[in-house]
Design a binder for these strands. Structure first.
Lengths: 147, 147
DNA sequence: GTATATCTATACTTTTTTAGTATAATATAT
DNA sequence: ATATATTATACTAAAAAAGTATAGATATAC
């Protein structure tokens, strides 16, 4: 199966949605993120590393270190997170930069997909992290039920 | 790069958009489809084979054989073609059938992506082949210019 | 009835992408 | 000092996508 949102991107969003719920409440160690979000620890590490480089999250090393969301959740969008992770998905390859299809200008399919993609990206840019917060309470409940 | 519409699906759409422009005007051999749409012949063959099995196109063997659109272009949608090709792309894997995420019910990200996907599929179901026709005239012009 | 143009059906190969792991190093609170 | 964290990069394995090859069947024109 084929997805526009890769696993990594999805995990990154989960991590940010969780951190959004703890904004202003200190640092969360990666080990805890992994546990509560059902991710492997090395993979979580990798994703946090990318998010940190793009300044979506801030990290603190050492004992009592951990991760927190750099900016308030209502100032970060789903698109921001995807973009930070290197999101460059396209509905159709013919929409990609550098791709020069000789039919492009006359191709109504191209125009159609272009419109669809714009709409989607626009919605990603509108959706804020504050709207998709995952709280500890919710997570504990579902994880308990899934055991 | 990652796309929702695979190359095969895109080619299938092109083929159908072209056949839509010649609906009621007889059969088009695969060799011609490949040439005019800038596709390799074996690949075109493979795609036509799939479209035939799903009755999107009808094929006639033998000398003077070829391919034509089974139904009028205003009765076939972009979604019909994608579906025939085995389209099962999802925005996010967590939307896939059989995928059971323990957080699913409470996950606002899941709900958000679900909505986005519905919107997209709906638009695919609304767009008819008659709206994306590629004519011989257009194609010859662009191909000439690209040489 | 034969040659030829055409589709049929499946198997194979190559390349790319994705997903995930491992590890040695560095930082900090106590 | 030491225990607990993150850092940064390299590596591996599995899966998917893209495209090719080929032997065969079929229909038609002549």
């Amino acid at each position: 199966m084929n997805t526009l949102i890769r696993r990594e991107y999805d995990y990154a969003l989960r991590i940010c949605a969780y951190l959004a719920g703890r904004y202003g409440q200190g640092r969360v160690p990666i080990s805890r993120l992994a546990k509560v979000l059902l991710l492997s620890r090395p993979f979580t590490t990798k994703i946090v590393f990318r998010l940190k480089n793009e300044k979506i999250v801030t990290t603190v090393q050492g004992k009592d270190g951990g991760v927190y969301l750099t900016n308030p959740p209502d100032q970060v969008t789903v698109y921001d997170v995807l973009h930070a992770m290197g999101y460059n998905s396209r509905l159709n390859e013919c929409l990609a930069e550098g791709h020069k299809c000789p039919m492009e200008d006359i191709c109504r399919l191209h125009i159609f997909f272009q419109q669809q993609e714009e709409m989607l990206i626009n919605n990603f840019k509108t959706k804020k992290l504050s709207e998709v917060i995952m709280t500890d309470g919710q997570l504990k409940k579902t994880v308990r039920e899934s055991l």
